[in-house]
């Protein structure tokens, strides 16, 4: 992974274009941007490993990543793919702050990486920011849960 720091103004501009952050105030975006940095991954590169400390989350800006899970009997399986504008990772929010899946770049990926500990600290200091972020992550949880429920139903199976 290549990591590069960018100017605060530049990252603020980047975040304004991400739907996840839509409607946030400049001050809030400034606080969040202070925990962010650019990250670049080659196709096939692993962003995070299951069981590792979850101290980061990503906003994918270009490219696609796969969320994988390894099964001893079925090998590695892709359970979801995440594309531009979408969020990867919420384990940084909740103890024990460990990744539950592998995340792998399917293509060259440019992302913004956020330091989870830094952002948790800012959320503790600023509950309004914390509540706003939590609502936004809750929407991501809901969307992924809906997707998971639909797949649990196996709608393409014989009985659905």
């Amino acid at each position: 992974m290549a990591v590069g720091s960018v100017s605060m103004r530049r990252l603020d501009e980047v975040l304004q274009e991400v739907p996840f952050f839509a409607g946030m105030t400049e001050a809030q975006l400034g606080l969040i941007a202070g925990c962010g940095s650019n990250a670049i991954f080659d196709a096939g590169e692993v962003l995070v490993r299951e069981g590792d400390a979850a101290d980061t989350f990503y906003v994918v800006r270009h490219g696609t990543v796969a969320i994988d899970l390894h099964s001893p009997t079925r090998g590695s399986l892709t359970v979801e793919t995440i594309g531009p504008g979408e969020i990867v990772g919420w384990s940084w929010l909740f103890p024990p702050h460990r990744w539950h899946f592998d995340v792998r770049a399917l293509s060259p990926v440019r992302a913004t990486a956020f330091d989870g500990a830094c952002l948790r600290g800012k959320c503790e200091d600023d509950p309004v920011l914390g509540y706003d972020l939590m609502k936004r992550f809750a929407q991501v949880f809901i969307d992924r849960l809906q997707s998971t429920r639909l797949r649990l139903l196996d709608v393409y199976g014989d009985g659905a």
């Binding site: 696609t64 796969a66 994988d68 079925r74 090998g75 590695s76 399986l77 892709t78 359970v79 979801e80 793919t81 594309g83 399917l106 969307d143 997707s147 639909l150 797949r151 196996d154 393409y156």
Partner: peptide, 19 residues
């Protein structure tokens, strides 16, 4: 194109079609 589940040989999307 998206599929509900795939192994690593699949380089396309995994998720549901309404997404």
């Amino acid at each position: 194109v998206t599929v509900d589940a795939a192994d690593l040989a699949w380089q396309g999307k995994v998720g549901v079609v309404p997404q």
